[in-house]
Simulated assay, not measured.
Amino acid sequence: MSDSILKVFIDDREKNSGVPEILEDMGVPIVVSRLQIGDYVIGRNIGIERKTANDFINSIIDKRLFEQARYMLESFEKCIFLIEGDFDRVLRYRKVKYNQIFGALVSLMDMNVHVMVTKNEKQSALFLYTLYKRQFKEKRNCYLEPTKIRVIKSNVSLPLIQINLISTFPGISREIADKILRHFKTPRRFFKATSNELRRVEGLGDKRIRKIIEVLDTMYQPEINKALDNRETGQESDGR
């Protein structure tokens, strides 16, 4: 893949959302890695934060929403919150009213954050594809790899730190991390939980639970990292 081609950079925690796979099927060049800010980055100046309708409501309640928006504005020229899902369905079991949702959306727009609402992952992917195509036409001859943005996060909320900590586990999205923390109350209780206790959390199936247990119980083996690094750089271990 040529470096001159515009790419869409995707946070690796988005892999299970279905959106990256659809974008790839559409022919969009994607790069999946851990992003510091945002879920999708197009070119150097567009950052997109994707949230399900339920996660959007959670971020209003725990006050993460505007903190995330501020970090996005500090990092990108254009910031977009992509909200995916059916609010009518979610509000059936949440103690939140539409005026709170609309108030949050208006506040985001007051901050100069763009907002897009889609029904499902297919519509989300189509929106990102359309945005990508527009940028590709405008900048295909002058594209540069995005520089790594270092944002100094002062006064980061403790709930956001906890959400980010739990969502580093394989297969654990921010939404599932929120459910885990609501169930166990603290990360330490989650780390000490047995398989049976983990099964009580909605969204944690046997496959995810096995991976969590594997990460927590496997002895650290730094020589494996060294072997992987050598393989990626084309070097072979000389046995020393």
Rank of each mutant, 00 (worst) to 15 (best):
D39V: 03
V41Y: 01
K63Y: 13
E14Q: 13
V31R: 11
R13F: 07
L23N: 02
N58H: 13
S59W: 07
G47W: 02
F56D: 08
L23R: 02
N54R: 15
T52A: 05
V32C: 06
V31A: 08
I48N: 00
G47I: 03
S33V: 12
I61W: 00
R34V: 14
R64F: 06
V28T: 12
M26N: 12
R13A: 13
V28Q: 08
R44Q: 14
P29A: 07
V41M: 08
K63T: 11
E21H: 04
E49R: 14
G18L: 10
I22R: 13
N16W: 12
D12K: 12
R50A: 01
R50V: 04
E24V: 07
I42M: 03
R50P: 02
V32N: 03
E14I: 01
D39F: 04
D62S: 09
I30K: 00
L23G: 01
I37G: 09
S17Y: 02
S17D: 11
L65G: 08
L65K: 07
V19M: 01
V31Q: 10
I37S: 07
K51V: 02
I22H: 06
N16T: 11
I30Y: 00
N54A: 10
P29T: 04
D25H: 08
N58L: 08
E24K: 15
A53F: 02
G27H: 11
P29Q: 06
D12W: 07
K15F: 04
N58K: 13
L65M: 11
F56S: 09
V32K: 13
N58S: 13
G18I: 07
V28Y: 05
R64M: 08
E14F: 00
F56H: 05
K15T: 10
P29H: 06
K51E: 09
Q36E: 15
R34S: 15
G18C: 07
S59N: 14
I22F: 11
T52H: 05
I57W: 06
G47Y: 03
E49F: 03
E14H: 01
L65Y: 09
I61V: 13
D55H: 12
L65P: 03
E24A: 13
V31E: 14
I37H: 11
I48M: 00
G18W: 04
S59G: 06
R50T: 04
Y40D: 02
I57D: 02
N16A: 14
V31L: 13
K15P: 00
N58W: 10
G18Q: 10
E21P: 01
G47H: 01
K63F: 13
I42V: 14
D12F: 11
D25V: 05
